[in-house]
Design a protein around this nucleic acid. Structure first.
Lengths: 134, 134
DNA sequence: CAGGATCCCATTCGATACTG
DNA sequence: CAGTATCGAATGGGATCCTG
């Protein structure tokens, strides 16, 4: 009976896993909270884009990450992928209706971020200054 | 002149770094898009909590991650950390006014997730079925 | 009770090279 | 042009032990 605490942790962890598996928010967060997904959705917000266009618009994303992100979004039904089998293949990505409903949410988040980034940066400076002093 | 493409990538990367450094949304996302930060903010939405309470409410977060997340949120000025030097130390965490303004945004995201999780899960099933078939 | 310090495994992501 | 495959570095995150 000495490991009661540890055992409890283990049980909590199992409960947590079950809870998480059923938690919609986290599952969704796993996709759209992704490093690139938000940028991609924004880049697609005002119309379809070709793969190459996205690479340009989201300069900095490696081709690997871009493809990977697009696959995830496609899997979740947020974007469609349309292949036109011409001579150099052409692939277009476009937001689905569901994907479009996400845009305002992201916009709200973006708005909040832009409104409060000043305070946050200031807070970080203060905090870091205090830590150095301590 | 043969490595033009590579060089362009490198230049894009530098521009990207500069852009990212100045992009408020991404900086904020780095904090609140974190695996645990959202849960913590939610757990604090309706009042201050002690460290131990948070551990219980967010069962599954290791103590390390909880502390780390709280530190980040504190640094960003979203929560306050109050130490009461009693015999067993007591530490309370509470959302700042700024932190509270984030709650509705998170709630919107949560609402969207809960509304659309069904479609998303269905889409994943369909997608996976197609992949297996291919 | 709160949380710092370590160890260590799993995943992420970028760079590079290759295919249709 | 779009995408896949592989490798290696970096990071995230959990388990454990220790302090005030």
């Amino acid at each position: 009976m000495t490991k009661t605490a540890d055992q409890r942790r283990g049980e909590e962890r199992i409960l947590y896993d079950a809870f998480m598996a059923a938690c919609p928010t986290r599952q969704v967060f796993a996709t759209i909270g992704d490093k690139w997904a938000g940028l991609v959705v924004n880049a697609l917000a005002d119309g379809p884009r070709r793969h190459g266009e996205l690479r340009t618009r989201i300069a900095g994303a490696s081709q690997k990450m871009l493809t990977q992100t697009l696959r995830t979004l496609e899997r979740d039904g947020l974007v469609t992928r349309t292949v036109t089998p011409s001579v150099p293949v052409r692939v277009d990505y476009e937001l689905t209706p569901l994907g479009h409903t996400l845009v305002p949410i992201l916009a709200a988040l973006k708005g909040w971020a832009e409104s409060n980034i000043g305070d946050i940066l200031q807070s970080r400076e203060d905090y870091d200054a205090k830590v150095v002093a301590a």
